[in-house]
Structure formats: C-alpha cells, structure tokens
Design a binder for these strands. Structure first.
Lengths: 149, 149
DNA sequence: GAATTTTAGTTGCATTATGAAACCAAAATG
DNA sequence: CATTTTGGTTTCATAATGCAACTAAAATTC
C-alpha cells in the first residue's frame, strides 16, 4: 500500500479517530471486545483474521491505549486483551454502526442481533441532541473551528 | 492484500456496516460529504487521496447507495457526488467518531473543529438511551439474536 | 473563437499490506 | 510425562495502494 497518509495533524476529530481505529480489522476487534471476547485465539476464531495481522492489530491497539493486556492466571507470559476506559468510550461508535446496519443492510425479517437493555430487554436507541435535549440532524448543525488558546 | 474476507453473511449489523463503509478512505469521503464537498477534485484535494483510489471508492459508494451522482450544469458527462438519504443516515457514526476523537485524541487547548447547532452555536451531544430515555452504557446492555421469521 | 487551464478521470508501474500456511516455544491438559 | 492448545513468528505469494504520466471533455481566458 505504500505508507498511508496519516491525518494525525488534521484538526478534525473524526479523522483522528479514523487514524486511531479506522482500520477495518481494528473496529471488528473492538466490536468483539464489547461482546466479551478477550483471548487471542477467540478473536482469531471469531473473525477469521490471519494470526500475524491479529498480532499486529492488537499491538497497535494496545499502543494507542484502546486495549490493555492483563496477565491471565499466575503465568506471566499469557495475557488477555481488554478494553481500557478509553476503549470503552468507543461504545457509541459501535452502536451507531450497528444502528445504520440494522436500518439499511438487512432484508426485512432477516436474522440479526439486537442490542437491548439488560434489565428490560428493550432495544437501546442512540440520538443526537442539542444541549437542551431537542433531536437534531446534520442539516441543523455546522462545523466551527476552535482555535488553540 | 488478497481478497479481504467479506463478512456480508454476518448477522451482526456493525460488521455489515463496516463491510459497506468501513474502509478507511470511504469514511473520510463521507465525512467530507457532510462538510458539503461534492466534486471529485475537491475530495481529492481535501484528502490527498490518489485519484485512481478515489475513483474506485466513489464508484463503490455509489453502488452501495451511500452516494448518488447528480449531473452538474447542463452537461451530461460532469457529475457531482452527493449523499443519499441512506448516506445521510451515517451522520450518527460520524458524530460518534468525532466525539471520541475530541475526548481522547487532542491535547487540551489544541486547535480542533467542533460540531454545533446552527441556531444557537452550542455543541451537539450524542448519547445512548433506553426506550424511556435513561442514559445507558455498554455494561447495561446485552446482545440478543433476532431469529428470522 | 482559439488557446489555455481545469476537471475528472485512466493506465502502468513500484511498493507495501495482507493472508495463508508452516513453524515454534510455553503452558495447559490428560 | 506425552499430547494438545495457546499465542504467537516467519516466509512467501498476491492484491491493494500510491505515484506519476497521460487523456478527453468542459470551462475559462485572451
């Protein structure tokens, strides 16, 4: 691929996020982590990813602070990968992706998974609101630049 | 890269979304589109993407129904790329990515852009709630399988 | 209205990221 | 203590990407 152009310097936060976790596999790994997968072999089985690529992605995600390794059992060499608090903050991204998929990428009646509240079993919803709680869409918003102080 | 494994058959809606738009460039193109970029050359300048790759991505995004081409002027051969209603439904994904980036990928005081409500100039917020409006996080949710009917 | 520039690509080539498979050491299991 | 599982690393072939050069049509300038 030739070293992909980094957008680190970009002042757009979405671009930086994509730089950090916008790789196809990374996001799927994070999705699996929210589904309580923690072991190398389980990620590998779940995703069908090549092991060298999984090694690489996990290392990068740990480096970036999305995952942390925790020793498993009393052994020192064996670890599990779990989301850091920063990693858990990707939850809305996953929910937004899920919601888009549910709405547009399934046939009516087709089998799929659904994210529900534990207690009630009711589906959760995600929405974008103004400070005072009114729902708002893209047309009602605009980007402004916050200068460095 | 060797044909990347498709997850189309996956019943997880997030995986399907990533299959449709989870490519690094595609999401950046969509981000630019929300920033009112519509022309080939403007995408190219904004992203610094190679032109053949941009051609490929735009074609794929049109095929998948995220973008549509609209003829520009009275000419037939020149087109603009604009988000379809389906494409605009990616707004929450972009906002979620943006929110994550703002929170974790900028130094305090560093220059960045901010998404605000047009009328009030106040930042918008995104949150995940239960049906009856209580905020909820990953720990309070669980995935269930909706069988085909 | 002819010349020039811009737009929106296409083509060819070099390089890199990826995937598959083989291999391996340490830990767990029987 | 023999075998299997886990968590990788290495090697190699190939596809995806980026870069630069090229092009035809449209837009603009002179």
């Amino acid at each position: 691929m030739v070293a992909r152009r980094r957008l680190k310097g970009d002042y757009c936060p979405s671009a930086r996020s994509l730089d950090a976790i916008g790789d196809w596999w990374s996001l799927l790994i994070v999705r699996d982590a929210f589904d309580d997968i923690r072991r190398f072999s389980d990620f590998q089985k779940s995703l069908g990813i090549a092991k060298n690529i999984l090694t690489d992605r996990l290392r990068a995600l740990v480096e970036r602070g999305i995952f942390e390794t925790v020793p498993v059992g009393e052994a020192k060499a064996r670890v599990e990968y779990q989301l850091t608090p920063m990693g858990r903050d990707l939850f809305p991204v996953m929910v937004a992706l899920r919601q888009f998929g549910e709405r547009h990428l399934f046939q009516p009646g087709e089998e799929h998974s659904l994210l529900v509240e534990k207690e009630t079993g009711l589906p959760v919803k995600l929405d974008i609101r103004t400070q005072d709680g009114r729902p708002i869409d893209a047309a009602g918003t605009v980007l402004v630049k916050v200068p460095e102080e």
